[in-house]
Design a protein around this nucleic acid. Structure first.
Lengths: 187, 187, 187, 187
DNA sequence: GATGAATGAGACTTCATTCAT
DNA sequence: GATGAATGAAGTCTCATTCAT
């Protein structure tokens, strides 16, 4: 990605990595700090609480998807097919990087009923994803059908990310991720 | 504080409920004990550790699916279509009960790299699910195609369970869950 | 005092001592625990928080004054003069025990705007004190005058406790404490 | 007050306000800095430690009372009655300003056994107060009686400041504060 | 002189676990 | 078998203080 590695940016980035791998509750501020080369209490110069750090982390992931993945759905200069291909490519680039599954899914399962703001962010992330796919699919399907196919696609990708972690085999994800674009081409 | 049946089965059942809702790391032994009408230390008469209790909980879920869901895939007296229908029905019965998503998925995301045995159990659970669907689908598709469709189905159901939690709308799950049987009927 | 030395009772008692000497904010749970022969976290078996412990401590002081000091104001079998004498005696017995000034005054200065419940308890303590003195003084003075003299007496005693600490000389307190009874006798 | 707004003077002034309200232990250097429009570390350009700042704060209060309150006790151009009246007036002016009680009493209760120098300053403050009143009262009473009345007056005023905070009613203080001068006039 | 990052000790609190009763 | 007291490690967070810039 672009982005100058501000200190704060590095922290968020490292934190994202760790939380993605271990989950929010299993990752301690001490671990987070250590991953940034800081001591336990030093993180609090950047974020007033673990929650605040988590929100920054989620915001970062959201921004990434917005700017690097979802936006291709609205790229007027590309054909619908190219848009789907590009989205799949960028999605792949993200989820095959490092270990750990989908950070947003992690938050969804572990914290959604705990911290309302977390729930909001997670919801928006998935909504944006569905909206993006839906937007492209509307070039070929009815609004309802497009939305339904988009939802199915997101669900299948997320489930496949889970299976990828469980079986430690990226194929599950790769196949699911490419399916929408392939179906679109084929249909 | 219903301090009645504190048999081992009740404990495991109550623990399963709680962990499904809150996740392994967020659920304390004290909470678990309280949910069973016991006091903090008393759980240790049944299980030597939190891990052991978790393993029992996972085993219980596994048994449930084995006996109530997956086994229909091998019910010789039913047609393939009936088998898929029955599996979908039972799957629905389980996941629409109470709140919380899929306990196994929770463990997958939160503990898989932490406690090897947890990983094994989760893996077997999903493998059995895929195997069961796969077994039925082989009546119509090639071995490879059957397996692939089974994997897709499990992925989509799991992803839909996630969306169900995120959007607090059971429709995502219901639609995904019924899809394999519907496709089978239609194809 | 009487009271069986329940463990819990001992804890509250030791905590009261320490907080009276050091103040709420300067006294840590570790110190408190150590004074009880416990470890840091063990206090939490008895009280869910430092605040809860503090409330118990304040409640204990309040009970003590209610039963050992203030109640003499309402002892029908005694003459007004005897009541005042008795109150002064018991007040002395309390404040000359150990070091540290008035626990309630400590809370008043350090926490009153911080924890609403603390403020309530402190307020009631001083109100009860004023009411008790007031009740006796009404045998000789008008209601208004009695109340005013009672307020003055409590103020002077509290101020004298302060001076006792500052100058490390109990005379300040002793003289102030005996004054109401002496004035009553003399007037 | 006059006081040129030296930066350092402002700092001490703001710090005094805050510590008076919250107490020494509850007030952090960060809060203190913020109240001065500075950042955390910048306070250390003015004072090498929190203790040093506290000593400056106490010194300032002491100076204030010396020059604005106590000195009237030694104002040869005034009658004893006028001196007492003036002292009461100035005392009132100070304690009715802002919230919070008597900063010196706060230190007395929270830090007296912690930082010896704090204890010394507090002791001198109250000694000076008693001396000042005592000096005026000697015009009418014996040395011993004057001192005793002075001590009583200071105690009652301090106690009344406490009640003022507890009951959030300035009347307690106002009445106590005016009493010496009134008694002097009446006697 | 001012800043803000960094520190390390220590605050309150939680928790899995043990054990005497 | 059940209890509840006790533990000790670990977790989140605060704070006085230092220091390079």
């Amino acid at each position: 990605m672009p982005a100058q590695k501000t200190d704060l940016d590095t922290i968020v980035s490292r934190a994202a990595e760790l939380i993605r791998k271990q989950g929010y509750h299993k990752t301690s501020m001490a671990e987070l700090a250590e991953a940034c080369g800081l001591l336990k209490g030093s993180l609090y110069h950047y974020f007033p609480s673990k929650e605040a750090l988590a929100i920054a982390v989620m915001g970062r992931v959201r921004d990434y998807f917005e700017h690097e993945v979802f936006r291709w759905a609205y790229a007027d200069e590309l054909s619908p097919q190219e848009r789907l291909d590009r989205m799949a490519l960028e999605t792949e680039r993200y989820f095959l990087r490092g270990e750990g599954g989908c950070l947003m899914a992690n938050f969804a399962l572990g914290t959604i009923d705990l911290v309302p703001e977390f729930g909001m962010i997670v919801k928006r992330y998935f909504q944006d994803w569905i909206d993006a796919l839906s937007h492209v699919l509307r070039s070929k399907y009815s609004t309802d059908m497009a939305r339904q196919k988009a939802e199915q696609a997101v669900a299948e990708i997320q489930g496949a990310i889970l299976l990828m972690r469980v079986f430690k085999d990226a194929e599950y994800f790769i196949r699911a991720n490419r399916k929408i674009a392939a179906d679109f081409r084929g249909a």
